[in-house]
């Protein structure tokens, strides 16, 4: 049974987590927002899984719903748009882990609801289980609830479409194990962990085709409703830095291994 899907992927941006800024000497904060922005890594896994699924299911379509500062989103699109064909729905909003999950979910819900022609029989809602912007890890569940999607899967590492169209889902659980569930079919929400399929290589021809839709979408991106209005932050502090570095010269590998094992056991 060959099924095609409408895969709606929700994503935000994050400062590149593979980079971190060398603190400026003297009393200054390091400003991670000065780092280049990338698609939030968890959401990126969701997008790439969507790309592979859509490619294997002819007739499928991917929608990318992104809530982020428009200008930064445009830069990120220069890479992401080369990886898979998609339609962008852009919301102009902040790039911050301090935004409230319920408000973000509300904004995303409005945007997803505005997509014309969504068919619940073919609809999969993808997103990141977590976020690299200190997210609460709750946005996707709240969004699914708002959209009336009952089948929800968290920390997904694999999705397999069975012959009868049902979805077999691997969710990450404690101890490196997975909980495997069988879902009848769409609509379903999958909040991805890292997934298992590779990041598609850049293809400029896909990028050029995507850009015909991406640039207008960015131009007409509506400002997201103000976020954080209902929240009062009593205190904000930098996370405490812990440094436990010792310089040991000429240690034997066995000795290092013993010490590491002891530390892990602790």
């Amino acid at each position: 049974m060959s099924v095609s899907y409408q895969i709606v992927v929700c994503a935000g941006l994050a400062p590149d987590p593979l980079q971190t800024l060398e603190p400026v000497p003297g009393p200054a904060l390091k400003n991670e927002l000065a780092l280049p922005a990338v698609l939030d890594p968890w959401a990126a896994h969701a997008l790439y899984e969507a790309a592979h699924l859509a490619k294997s299911r002819p007739g499928s379509k991917v929608y990318l719903v992104a809530l982020a500062p428009k200008a930064k989103l445009q830069q990120v699109m220069m890479t992401v748009a080369q990886k898979l064909p998609f339609e962008l729905i852009a919301l102009d909003g902040p790039m911050s882990g301090f935004a409230d999950a319920a408000e973000v979910a509300a904004a995303l819900s409005a945007a997803v609801s505005g997509i014309a022609g969504l068919d619940r029989e073919r609809w999969l809602l993808f997103g990141g289980w977590e976020s690299a912007t200190r997210g609460a890890g709750a946005t996707m569940q709240m969004l699914a609830e708002r959209l009336g999607i009952i089948d929800q899967f968290l920390a997904v590492d694999e999705l397999r479409v069975e012959e009868d169209g049902s979805l077999r889902v691997w969710e990450r659980v404690e101890g490196g194990g997975h909980q495997v569930s069988l879902c009848e079919g769409p609509p379903a929400m999958l909040a991805w962990a890292t997934g298992r399929l590779p990041e598609p290589v850049n293809n400029p021809q896909i990028g050029m085709a995507n850009m015909r839709g991406v640039m207008p979408a960015l131009q007409r991106a509506r400002p997201a409703p103000p976020l954080g209005g209902g929240i009062e932050y009593r205190k904000v502090a930098l996370p405490a830095q812990q440094r436990q570095t010792r310089v040991v010269k000429d240690a034997a590998p066995e000795e290092i291994a013993r010490e590491l094992a002891a530390w892990i056991r602790e």
Binding site: Q75, M78, T79, Q82, N202, P204, G207, M211, V214
Partner: peptide
């Protein structure tokens, strides 16, 4: 020139 921006990233 978004075509060139994409090229750079690629």
């Amino acid at each position: 020139r978004f075509d060139l921006q994409m090229l750079v990233q690629s």
